[in-house]
Design a protein around this nucleic acid. Sequence first.
DNA 1: GAAAAAAAATGAACTAGTTTAAGATTTTTA
DNA 2: TAAAAATCTTAAACTAGTTCATTTTTTTTC
Lengths: 197, 197
Amino acid sequence: MKLDNTHQLIIENISRFIDLTELEKQKYISLLTEIKIDRKTFLMQAGDITKYEYFITKGCLKVYTLDENGTPHISMFAVEDYWTGDMASFITKEPSRYFIKATEDSELLGISRANYDLLFQQIPKFERFYRILYQRSLISYIRRANHGISLTAEERYIRFKKKYPKIVNRITQKDLAAYIGITPEFMSKIITKVNRR
Amino acid sequence: MKLDNTHQLIIENISRFIDLTELEKQKYISLLTEIKIDRKTFLMQAGDITKYEYFITKGCLKVYTLDENGTPHISMFAVEDYWTGDMASFITKEPSRYFIKATEDSELLGISRANYDLLFQQIPKFERFYRILYQRSLISYIRRANHGISLTAEERYIRFKKKYPKIVNRITQKDLAAYIGITPEFMSKIITKVNRR
DNA sequence: GAAAAAAAATGAACTAGTTTAAGATTTTTA
DNA sequence: TAAAAATCTTAAACTAGTTCATTTTTTTTC
């Protein structure tokens, strides 16, 4: 049986780390939920108990918290071929502190908590997939945590641009500022300064 | 067969997430290397290719990088019952950018890369253990990354003290500053200010 | 247990990043 | 396609955190 493009992408993503039989692929796909979401609408909001972990097949979303002043702090931008969600809430089933909002019309595949647990029972190989996926995410978050406390805002901007050249062009400067951890005004100054060179 | 205290601790740590038979415990323990290290000595240095992932059974270590000015930035403090190492170098087999130094005489159990790979072949259940371990680490690093860019140094200090009350008393103010991401001078000011209240 | 070394405290001058405010430009919506 | 809304730019005054220099206190070493 031939896979459609949407499922093709997620299967390729998984096949980078583990090998699946045709049967396992079908079984896995049957556990997924297809989700379409318009630009500027929420996939989830703070206070929700996270129902899904998501894989993005099309579009772009931002994952963020609001602090006590109402200032947003963006944790990640998720585009095609990325996984996202709020793992803490997904695992503990406690209310999330995160918002996830589409910055473009987007299409996602979601796996519910019940199906996630089922997946490990039915295809234990997925423990390995997630072990490797989380391991790699961990490496990049450890780096991000270190950069946040050791680099200047300008250095963080330059690295972001180098690491995610395609994402820079898809997001507003304001959102970039909320990711870098500075005000939009200072972001504007940095960009002017860096591009002047 | 009765386990000694050292192995007892690591088996209890693992048993929080997966169940092991006596045979599996013995098998696992046979893959570990016991390491003792004196205060102020290095477990590894930048440029090394990381040989092991470590579990601490006694003592305290700091994991840090040095920036181009020679300023240290501490990524984590590892004490009893913690796992540490440089995952990026361990996985990619590329030279590490981290130093790991004991701040107290310490005892560790190390698993080599070869044995780590062997472990998954011989006891596939360990994929699940590491999946859960990494998942939990990921949750706390995502939080740390967000705090680094959204909280003031004083707020980060207060949270560290609340989250790790035992560790605060085992480390120098200078090392705490390198973890929080500020100068020792400013750390001193914050502590004076917070304790005055 | 004295001397040396490291850590901590304090203060003054500085800089990276914030705040507030107002105008210019771009994007969205009807 | 015009009006409204959002984003971006610029600038002046401000604050969190740095730097550098000196002294005091604590820890380490012999």
